[in-house]
Design a protein around this nucleic acid. Structure first.
Lengths: 226, 226
DNA sequence: ATGATACTCGAACGCCTGTTCTGTGTCAAG
DNA sequence: CTTGACACAGAACAGGCGTTCGAGTATCAT
C-alpha cells in the first residue's frame, strides 16, 4: 500500500545532514561530531542524529568508523578534495576518422571509467578545465606531432587557433585527422610537425580545414611492449 | 640510555610520527589520536607526543585543530586524499649531463613546488608510485623518443631493463643521456628510438651503458609559443 | 659545578563523543 | 480501539581524548 511516510529516498533531514557534512569537511579539514551535526541541522538529540546516520550508512551515502570520534565521512564527496579535476574522455582520435567533440549539454554524464583526472598543479595556464575534453590516440599517424599510439591528449575546444598553437585539425579533402602546430601564412596554412626533422605540410586557404581543438596537454603511459 | 640531540631539522621521532600519520590516514580515512601515535611510535606518554606534535606544527609539517579529536593532519600528505600521489621532481634530464637519481633517505624533503601530482587512475600497472621520481626534459635531444623540451618524464629507478622497456640511459663513452627503447641482442645492445622513422643505435656490450631508470609516463604541457 | 636546554615520563583533570536505554507522540493498518 | 512501525527527545553511561602539571634525566656551554 501507499505509505505517505518518507519510506523512500532521502528525506529533508537526510539531505540537510549530507550537505552539512560536506560543507563542514570542506571548511575544516575533518568530520563533524554527532552533536555538531545535531546543532546545525536543528536536531536536539544525539540519538536522533545517530538514527539518521545509521540510515544514511545503510543507504550507502556515508561511511562510519564506529567508536571513533568524528568518524563520519561522505562516500563520494562532490569535489574529490584533492586539488584535481575530471576531464571527460570523448573517444579516440585517429587518421581517417573525424574526432568526436563534446556536446554542450553533457556535463555530468560521464563516469570515472571514461574520464581522466588531472592534478590542477599540472595544468598549463589557467584553463581550469571546465571545457576540456580528452581523446585517446589510436594508430601512429600522429607521430609527427610527437604523439604516439595510446597517448592521451587533452584538448580545449576552439575554432580559431593562433600561430604556434598545437591543434587537432580535420582535413576533409584528405580525409584525415592530424595534430600539428598551426601557422597562418600569406595565402595558405602551414601545419608544422612537432618533430623538426619532418617537413611541414601546406594547406591552401580554400581547401577546407577544420580546427577541432587546441592541445593543452599530452599524457603517455608507458607500460606496453612486454 | 642514549638521547640523541637534534636541534635542527627533523629528528628520528619526528619522521616516525609523520610517517605514521601518513600511513594511518591512508589506511583508515581519518587521523590518529595522540595515544595511537604514541603506541605506534614507541612513545609511552601522551605529553611527549604532544611535545613533538607542537614542534611539527611550528615547523609547518602538520596542522592541528586544537581541542578536536583526531585533529592532526599533514600539511602536504604524500597522497593528497584524492586518489593521487606525489612524485618528487629530481631535476632535469638533458644530453651531456648525467641525470640525478633520488637518494634513498629523502622521503619528505621535497615540497609541493618541486614535485608532481599524478592521479592514480592515470598510473600504468600497479607501480603505486612509492619509488618513482620525475625529471624535466631540457633540450630537444630526446626527440627521437617522442619526448620534447619541457616534457616531464616519470621514471622508476632500476638497473636492469627488459627488452622493450623505455629506459633512461647514460652513455659515458658518448657523454650523453638519452631515452630509448632497450633491446639486448647477441653481443650488443640496441637502443631503438620511439620514432620508427629514425634508426636505432647500437652499443657494444663492453661499452659502458648505465641504465638509470625505466620510463613509466610522459607528460607534456602545451602552453608555449604565444 | 651550574644553570640552561632538550627530552621523557606518568598521572590526573575534564571535556568530548559515540552509544544505549527509556519514553512520547503520530499515523496507518487490522 | 489496538497494534506496531516510525520519528523524535532526553538523559545517562563509559570510554576516548586533548591538555596540563610536576618531576626526572641527559647533554652542553659557561
Amino acid at each position: 500500500m501507499m505509505m505517505v511516510r518518507k519510506s523512500k529516498g532521502l528525506g529533508e533531514r537526510h539531505q540537510k545532514i549530507i550537505e552539512f557534512i560536506d560543507g563542514y569537511q570542506r571548511k575544516f579539514k575533518h568530520s563533524p561530531s554527532i552533536r555538531e551535526i545535531g546543532e546545525h541541522c536543528d536536531i536536539s538529540s544525539t540519538s536522533v542524529v545517530n538514527y539518521y546516520l545509521d540510515q544514511l550508512e545503510k543507504s550507502g551515502h556515508i561511511e562510519r568508523d564506529r567508536k571513533i570520534s568524528r568518524g563520519v565521512r561522505l562516500t563520494s564527496p562532490a569535489m574529490p578534495v584533492g586539488d584535481m579535476f575530471r576531464v571527460p574522455m570523448m573517444g579516440v582520435i585517429q587518421a581517417g576518422e573525424p574526432i568526436p567533440v563534446p556536446s554542450n549539454t553533457d556535463f555530468n554524464s560521464f563516469t570515472p571509467e571514461d574520464s581522466v583526472e588531472i592534478a590542477t598543479s599540472l595544468m598549463p595556464t589557467k584553463e581550469k578545465g571546465k571545457e576540456l575534453f580528452a581523446l585517446k590516440v589510436q594508430g601512429e599517424s600522429m607521430i609527427d606531432a610527437m604523439v604516439n599510439d595510446g597517448d592521451i591528449v587533452i584538448l580545449k575546444p576552439t575554432q580559431d587557433a593562433r600561430n604556434g598553437d598545437m591543434v587537432a585539425v580535420w582535413l576533409s579533402d584528405r580525409n584525415e585527422t592530424t595534430l600539428k602546430f598551426f601557422f597562418k601564412e600569406k595565402d595558405k596554412y602551414r601545419l608544422q610537425p612537432a618533430n623538426p626533422t619532418m617537413k611541414p605540410i601546406y594547406i591552401d586557404k580554400n581547401e577546407s580545414l577544420e580546427i577541432k581543438g587546441k592541445v593543452v596537454m599530452v599524457i603517455r603511459k608507458v607500460e606496453r611492449y612486454n
